[in-house]
């Protein structure tokens, strides 16, 4: 599974960056969404892979009622906490970018980034 996930992450990064390098502002937004997924999967895979390269389905880090700790193996909660934060922030960025694209398109009448450069100078 880790090998497959690594390949997937590579593909997601490649398509995300390809979209981000387009001159179309909408495509840039799609690239941003994709790169968010790539990064989340990357954090997850790096943490869940064992030294020998294997990956196992483990129970989540939940303590049973009446217990004070989890006995036996469980999935590392830290990467999931980080991913959870990252998902929410990626969402905020996506929402903002979408509105920005819409608004910029209304104002400038184009979504070609090369034609928007004058405002950057």
């Amino acid at each position: 599974m880790s090998l497959l996930l690594a390949v997937i992450i590579g593909m997601l990064f490649a398509s995300a960056l390809y979209m981000m390098m387009r001159r179309s502002f909408v495509k840039l937004t799609i690239g941003l969404i994709l790169i968010g997924h790539s990064a989340n999967l990357l954090i997850f895979t790096c943490a869940a892979t064992r030294r020998d390269g294997s990956m196992e389905r483990l129970p989540p880090g939940l303590i049973e009622e009446g217990q004070t700790r989890i006995e036996g193996e469980f999935a590392d909660p830290l990467p999931f906490a980080l991913i959870l934060t990252a998902i929410v922030i990626a969402f905020a960025i996506t929402a903002f970018t979408l509105v920005l694209v819409k608004r910029a398109y209304q104002e400038v009448g184009t979504d070609d980034l090369d034609n928007m450069r004058t405002t950057d100078r």
């Binding site: 992450i9 997601l12 490649a14 892979t49």
Partner: peptide, 15 residues
Amino acid sequence: FGGVMACLVLAAGSQ
């Protein structure tokens, strides 16, 4: 870059 990231993930997971 995607290829490098894939290798990086494999390498980092094994450390």
